[in-house]
C-alpha cells in the first residue's frame, strides 16, 4: 500500500538547513497496523505528513497504492487524500463553527457525494460511534473523549483505505484513550490500514509492528509478539 525509498525531508530557512527525515525506507502492507514511536523532534510528524500526502518529500521515492506520488502537486495530492486517507489528530481538529453532524459530513461534501447518500452514511457512522444524541452539539459542548470520537467518525465516514493517527490518545485520560484504541483496533480488524504515531509503549502494543524513529531515520522495527498469541 505504502512504500518509501530513501525518503528525505529538509527544512530550509534563511540560514539553517534542518534534516527532518533522512533515508527513510518504510513499507506498509494493505490491512496492516503500524505504530511509529520516537522522541520529540525525531521526525514522526513530518513522516506522517508525507505519508498522509499533506507535504512532499525533498527527495526519494514514495509509492502510494503503487503510484509514485513524491512529485505530485497540491491538487493531485488533495484528490488522492480525500478518496483514500482519513486523519485523526491529537488535538482533534474539529471545526468549532460546525455541529458534530456537519463536521462528520465534511469529507463527503468534498467528495461531492449526493445529499441522500451523505445523510445515510453520516447517520450510520454516528450511530456506530454512539454520537446520535450529540449530533446537533458543537465541539466545545463535548468532552475530550467525545470530541475524539467525532474525529474518528469523521476520519472513517468516507471509508478510506488508510487511517493516519497522530497521537490520537495524547490529549485524553486513560479511560478515553483506551476507548479510542478499541475503536482503532476495530477498524483494523475490519480491514483498514492504520499508521499511528504514539508516545505510549502500551498503546503501541496494539499495533502489529512498531517502527522506531530517531533523528530522522528508522532505527528499529519490531514485530509485536502479541499478534502471534492471538
Amino acid at each position: 500500500m505504502i512504500e518509501t525509498k530513501n525518503l528525505r525531508k529538509l527544512y530550509t530557512t534563511d540560514e539553517v538547513e534542518t534534516t527532518a527525515l533522512n533515508k527513510v525506507n518504510l513499507k506498509v502492507n494493505e490491512g496492516e497496523f503500524v505504530a511509529i514511536m520516537g522522541p520529540s523532534g525525531c521526525g514522526k510528524s513530518t513522516l506522517l505528513n508525507i505519508l498522509g500526502l499533506l507535504d512532499n518529500p525533498t527527495d526519494g521515492e514514495f509509492y502510494f497504492l503503487d503510484t509514485e506520488v513524491s512529485k505530485y502537486t497540491e491538487k493531485q495530492r488533495a484528490h488522492l487524500r480525500k478518496k483514500n486517507i482519513g486523519f485523526v489528530f491529537q488535538s482533534f481538529n474539529l471545526i468549532d463553527e460546525l455541529t458534530v453532524y456537519e463536521n462528520v459530513e465534511l469529507p463527503l461534501l468534498y467528495l461531492k457525494m449526493p445529499a441522500s447518500e451523505r445523510k445515510q452514511k453520516v447517520s450510520h457512522v454516528l450511530e456506530r460511534m454512539q454520537l446520535i444524541p450529540r449530533k446537533n452539539h458543537f465541539p466545545q459542548q463535548l468532552s475530550g473523549g467525545q470530541q475524539q470520537r467525532v474525529a474518528v467518525a469523521r476520519a472513517i465516514v468516507s471509508e478510506p483505505k488508510l487511517i493516519l493517527a497522530d497521537e490520537p490518545t495524547g490529549n485524553l485520560d486513560s479511560a478515553n484513550g483506551e476507548e479510542v484504541m478499541r475503536l482503532v483496533t476495530q477498524l483494523h480488524e475490519a480491514g483498514t490500514t492504520i499508521i499511528m504515531v504514539t508516545h505510549s509503549p502500551a498503546y503501541a502494543e496494539f499495533a502489529q509492528r512498531v517502527v522506531h524513529l530517531f533523528d530522522g531515520h528508522i532505527v528499529t522495527e519490531n514485530i509485536n509478539s502479541k499478534e502471534f498469541h492471538i
Binding site: A78, H79, Y110, R154
Partner: peptide, 16 residues
C-alpha cells in the same frame, strides 16, 4: 487558518 487547514486535510482544494 485552523479551519481551512482542517478542510484541506479533508480534501478541499485551494479553490474550495
Amino acid at each position: 487558518s485552523q479551519e481551512m487547514g482542517i478542510r484541506k486535510v479533508l480534501g478541499a482544494f485551494r479553490a474550495d
